[in-house]
């Protein structure tokens, strides 16, 4: 570096990075976000463009070509890169279409439970008193019901389908939203700008929508990623147990369940969809942890 004569600082020197730039730097400097986001992005692309990428129709059965091994095994061919299943359906195509089911269920369940949990949590945190008592009681009741057992029983009684799984999970997974939103709202409610808005005569709706909600958004996003992963995992488990998404839909959990009878000689039938599931969950968890690190640094664990 050369010696600089003290001159008037140029504009370049004074300009500190804008908040947006800081945020961008933090995001791209966070290894978890980059890796998790990368994997997640690929899976989303897979789901969106499934009809373009998938080499075959995921429902087309070809009994002559059944149980073809994946390409890296001895008898594997490039015709079916990941092989075929027990009724001769192309495994890669089913895997690609399976991403749609997992993402759809994750997003919808996280959305439904997010709406229920956020309304309950924000109401409890903002109004306090009796509302808080009732909401806390409901949360306690919900927590003492085992999710897997309840959803298995409900699906068994009303019948398994994609819509039913979404609905059941959406109605069950709101507890964490409510807990987190309640405590975040309680913290914000006592801040000066909320009191100022109240003094200025703003309506309760205005305060909730414009003062409270934007400030609990970060925590909301973190919980949403957790519940997205939770819903994806539960759907796979339900489908695996035969009480979730029904065949012939290409759900990853269902693929593991169908491959289970061939576990001894063809373990790739369960290894492949399981790895896909693992990668999706890993990506979402990394993303969630990353968002928390970047936006809510004080909650770092």
């Amino acid at each position: 570096m050369s010696i600089m004569t003290p001159t008037a600082p140029t504009a370049e020197v004074i300009l500190a990075p804008t908040p947006g730039q800081i945020l961008r730097r933090r995001i791209f400097g966070h290894r978890g976000i980059v890796i998790g986001g990368g994997i997640f992005f690929v899976i989303v692309l897979m789901a969106l463009f499934a009809p373009l990428i998938a080499p075959y129709d995921p429902y087309h059965q070809d009994l002559i070509a059944r149980m073809a091994p994946p390409v890296w095994q001895d008898r594997g061919t490039w015709e079916h890169i990941l092989g075929t299943d027990q009724v001769g359906r192309d495994y890669l195509s089913r895997l690609i279409y399976g991403a749609r089911i997992s993402l759809l269920i994750g997003i919808m369940a996280a959305l439904i439970s997010g709406i229920i949990g956020t309304v309950m949590g924000v109401a409890a945190g903002y109004f306090g008193g009796k509302v808080d008592l009732v909401v806390t009681f409901l949360i306690t009741c919900r927590l003492s019901l085992p999710v897997i057992l309840v959803s298995l029983a409900v699906v068994a009684i009303v019948g398994g389908s994609l819509e039913m799984v979404i609905l059941v999970l959406g109605l069950l997974l709101w507890d964490r939203y409510a807990v987190v939103m309640r405590s975040s709202t309680q913290q914000i409610r006592s801040l000066d700008y909320v009191a100022a808005a109240q003094a200025a005569g703003c309506s309760t709706w205005y305060i909730l929508a414009r003062e409270i909600l934007p400030n609990v958004m970060n925590q909301l996003i973190v919980v949403a990623t957790l519940e997205f992963a939770h819903a994806v995992l539960l759907e796979a488990a339900l489908s695996f147990l035969g009480l979730g998404v029904q065949p012939p839909l290409p759900s990853w959990g269902l693929m593991i369940s169908e491959g289970r009878n061939y576990i001894l000689f063809d373990p790739w039938l369960i290894a492949i969809p399981g790895s896909a599931l693992f990668l999706l969950l890993l990506a979402v968890n990394l993303l969630g942890d990353g968002v928390r690190d970047v936006t809510v640094p004080e909650n770092r664990a």
Binding site: L233, A237, F240, G274, F278, L281
Partner: peptide, 8 residues
Amino acid sequence: GQAMPSFW
């Protein structure tokens, strides 16, 4: 551990 589906 958090991403591993237990049944798998």
